[in-house]
Computed example of a mutant assay.
Amino acid sequence: MPLAFATPAPDAPLPVAGVDEAGRGPLAGPVVVAAVVFPRGRTPVNGLDDSKALSAERREQLYPRIIERALAWQVVSIEVEEIDRLNIYHATMLGMRRAIEAVAARVGAVEALVDGNALPKGLPCRARAIVGGDASERAIMAASILAKVSRDRYMRELHARWPDYGFDEHKGYGTPAHRAALQRLGPCPAHRRSWAPVQATLQAPDLFAECVPG
């Protein structure tokens, strides 16, 4: 059920909720969505950019500044099981809706600016999809940084559980080293079994089929 809020006048200025994701393309790990609300017309964090244009060190520096100075923020992780059940598009839309609902519940009426060309259904607020928004809208830049940093940290945790796959290096993307590990070992519980490159390795022994990560 969408959250309900009083509808402001059509021309009323609203705080902006930037929304972006990290991890749509990898073979393993969650897709992570973040929403960041800044006051209308203000961006109280300097140095923002598309997360892909920033070094890992710079993203880590900006992360605490964003969460300290935003009106509201939320990071949502959609795990592998939901990705396999829903497909990556619908899993991403679900994450976006959850993130927007969370910040809207704290701030009230917002305008969501979503990176990309599609919007989740059932949003509780105004929303616009902006292709290339992570390079043009500062609230989306902030969301892209939170999503990327949060996902990279999570993938390092997965590396500690299953170090043979190199998750700390490739973050689950289908690099040659990752594909070679999949061919050698088969998938672990962090892999997206609905994805063709992972499915192609399922004839290899699934050494982790009964493994519950601790």
Score class of each variant (00 low, 15 high):
209 A>I: 09
160 A>F: 02
141 M>L: 07
26 P>R: 08
211 C>E: 13
187 P>L: 07
184 R>S: 10
124 P>E: 00
6 A>V: 09
197 P>Y: 04
48 L>C: 09
144 S>Q: 08
31 V>E: 00
101 E>M: 09
35 A>S: 04
181 A>V: 00
186 G>M: 10
129 A>Y: 12
2 P>A: 13
70 A>S: 15
73 W>G: 00
160 A>W: 04
212 V>D: 13
144 S>L: 09
169 E>S: 13
107 V>L: 08
12 A>K: 07
19 V>L: 05
166 G>I: 01
135 A>G: 15
67 I>D: 03
157 E>Q: 15
13 P>K: 14
64 P>A: 04
62 L>A: 08
171 K>M: 15
47 G>R: 06
197 P>C: 04
49 D>R: 07
167 F>N: 00
151 R>S: 09
33 V>L: 01
82 E>L: 07
11 D>S: 14
181 A>W: 00
161 R>D: 12
106 R>L: 09
153 R>A: 15
54 L>G: 03
192 R>A: 08
105 A>P: 05
142 A>N: 07
94 L>I: 00
86 L>W: 13
182 L>E: 08
144 S>N: 09
84 D>F: 04
108 G>C: 06
102 A>C: 11
88 I>A: 06
117 N>M: 00
55 S>M: 10
9 A>I: 05
173 Y>P: 06
21 E>D: 14
141 M>C: 10
169 E>D: 08
98 R>F: 00
207 L>H: 15
183 Q>Y: 01
51 S>Q: 14
146 L>R: 05
214 G>T: 13
110 V>I: 15
126 R>Q: 12
41 G>N: 06
180 A>K: 14
84 D>G: 05
96 M>K: 04
172 G>Y: 11
65 R>Y: 07
2 P>K: 14
20 D>H: 06
79 E>D: 15
46 N>P: 04
39 P>V: 09
14 L>Y: 07
130 I>S: 04
